[in-house]
Amino acid sequence: MKILVPVKRVVDFNVKIRVKPDGSGVDLQNVKMSMNPFDEIAVEEALRLKEAGKAEEVVVVSIGPAKAEETLRTALAMGADRAILVETDDAVEPLAVAKILKAVGEAEQPGLILLGKQAIDDDCNQTGQMLAALLGWGQGTFASKVELASDAVTVTREVDGGLQTVSLRLPAVVTTDLRLNEPRYASLPNIMRAKKKPLDRRTPADFGVATAARLRILRTEEPARRMAGVKVGSVAELVDRLRTEAGVL
């Protein structure tokens, strides 16, 4: 079986985000970029399934600027077999991403598409669901456990109030949650090998997908600053203020 893993290049999770002065978005100048952490978990899961003999090939795909090749090389260095870069400098919205991935999926015919439940930049949490709908495949989102059989996949999902287990007929789309696994470090020999692994360059036009924006961003702003705390003199005062000022008791 082949597993397709879409990965996104995003601002590194350690970076302190700066909003552009005109509020049009986040400043990406001289900012460290990395693979979306949820996608890294998806790559790791695909590699584990391959190592367990449940899959033969792991193909990674990224839609983004030429620099997204770095993100794909990182996935290749973790152990993915080959990569597809769908190159575009446009900001591609979840629906366009899903349409491109649908076309890639139809060309590659994977048994399973594994991807992060959301990207940490825009937190849309839409691509996996839209992709499943466009392909007409089953979807298992927010996976904390994935068990793959030859014709079905069992997914344990993290839902409000507990865990839900679903069984999906293959092919299927599964989106990964934080607790699914801990991604490995890319070893130095694998970083070297990744340089020589095949990387196929395409454009959205190759798949007949227009990436023009359908959403309009009105404003981007920083979250309100946290107010300083208040020191209280006694438990009685604390209870009183929680009741009268905070209104939580």
């Binding site: 090389r73 470090y185 890319a186 970083i191 340089k195």
Partner: peptide, 14 residues
């Protein structure tokens, strides 16, 4: 180079 950056990032994370 980019490959050096990959090596450095991995060592930094480790």
């Amino acid at each position: 180079t980019e490959t050096h950056e990959q090596v450095r990032d991995m060592a930094r994370q480790f």
